[in-house]
Design a protein around this nucleic acid. Structure first.
Lengths: 207, 207
DNA sequence: ACTAAATGGTAATACTTATTACCGTTTATT
DNA sequence: AATAAACGGTAATAAGTATTACCATTTAGT
């Protein structure tokens, strides 16, 4: 039998962390609907009472987990290098993060369960993708003032860059049809996408 | 009480269709895990026995549904108009189809349940997106031979076009954060994305 | 006419699960 | 020292559900 009883001073959050860690791992593996509270409690060596007093229930626990993850996809964007170099650095880090198996799986679960947790999906999006888009838009505004980029709405450009970067491979990943790319593959992937984003496919001059 | 007993000749598939129609509607509304066989049977006015003899169980029924939908996203691609015009026509039809609420929801369910139905996800992808990508790649090859487009791998170009077209809005749709676009909105959306895809954002000449 | 096949409807079976309740234990607080 | 708070562990509760079994009915095949 593991230690039980009231936690010593300073250790009040110990079971909470143990619970969140175990629950995250289990939700990633089994999804929301196919994971029982009993399994969570057993793996976290935590009593039912603790789960319900700390999070109110299964939905509350899931929400706390998602919120804890939702701000882990923020990437710095340097304004000091050449535009193409800065975008490449940003994109490589971003694509690396969002293609990790855990990140793919958590988005998949959230997409599947979004009708049940609409507010949670909103929060996840605004803490994650949206803040990166705002940074990118700021970057594009700077580049436009320097005369490097075409004068379209900066936030639209940010959205299109992110979409181009995701590429078909991320769609395949979300359906479980592709393997996780390593850093070298991502580097090539990102270079090709950004080159296309900057220069387009047409051979007829436009600008 | 509704008509029962062995179906008359020529009507053997009547209950099958009634079942598939009702089940599709219910799966779209409730997802896979939150829909009971009893609910399906009641709404379709069909007995349990029929479901199990026709489809073997819940998973078989779900699979039959997905397969029935998976080839409904194919779009013709004209090779006879100007490249930009042909791409716009293709893209408008394609984006319209995949942004309908039912199409968004079915992908969301499949993404969430893909660990449970890996083969089904593969089939869905290969019958849907992949065939459009192959058509697009063929189109790009033709355009490259005519000297209109840059000489990158045609299938890669097809993937990048589709990714650009999806845009951020489709990501938002899949998380339930955006409203369904109408044809007018899609027309603008597609024009902007294709223009960027063709000409890029950089003002420095490259090609 | 008679049997077998296929059906709609209902109920039974066996199983899982979210939530609540309880017990003994450990620690903080007074 | 005594009480209350917070814990781990287990069990009870109540509800839901995939699957199977059964019955009366309708039609095909012979």
């Amino acid at each position: 039998m593991i230690k039980c009883g009231r936690p010593a001073k300073g250790n009040e959050l110990l079971s909470r962390d143990r619970l969140l860690d175990a629950a995250l791992e289990l939700f990633l593996e089994h999804g929301y609907g196919n994971l029982s509270m009993e399994t969570i409690a057993r793996h976290a060596r935590v009593s039912m009472r603790t789960i319900y007093s700390q999070f109110g229930g299964k939905a509350g626990l899931f929400g706390a987990l998602i919120r804890r993850c939702s701000d882990q996809f923020m990437i710095d964007l340097s304004h000091e290098e050449s535009p193409e170099k800065a975008l490449n650095l940003f994109a490589q880090k971003y694509i690396y993060l969002i293609t990790r198996p855990d990140a793919v799986r958590i988005r998949a679960i959230l997409i599947g369960e979004s009708p049940r947790f609409p507010d949670l999906a909103t929060e996840f999006y605004e803490q994650g993708v949206k803040r990166n888009l705002e940074n990118l838009a700021q970057f594009f505004t700077t580049q436009q003032r320097a005369g490097h980029f075409v004068e379209l709405d900066a936030y639209f450009l940010a959205e299109q860059l992110i979409s181009t970067l995701r590429g078909e491979r991320l769609q395949q990943l979300q359906l479980g049809l592709a393997t996780t790319p390593d850093e070298q593959q991502i580097k090539i992937w990102v270079q090709q996408a950004i080159h296309l984003f900057l220069h387009g496919v047409s051979l007829k001059k436009y600008h």
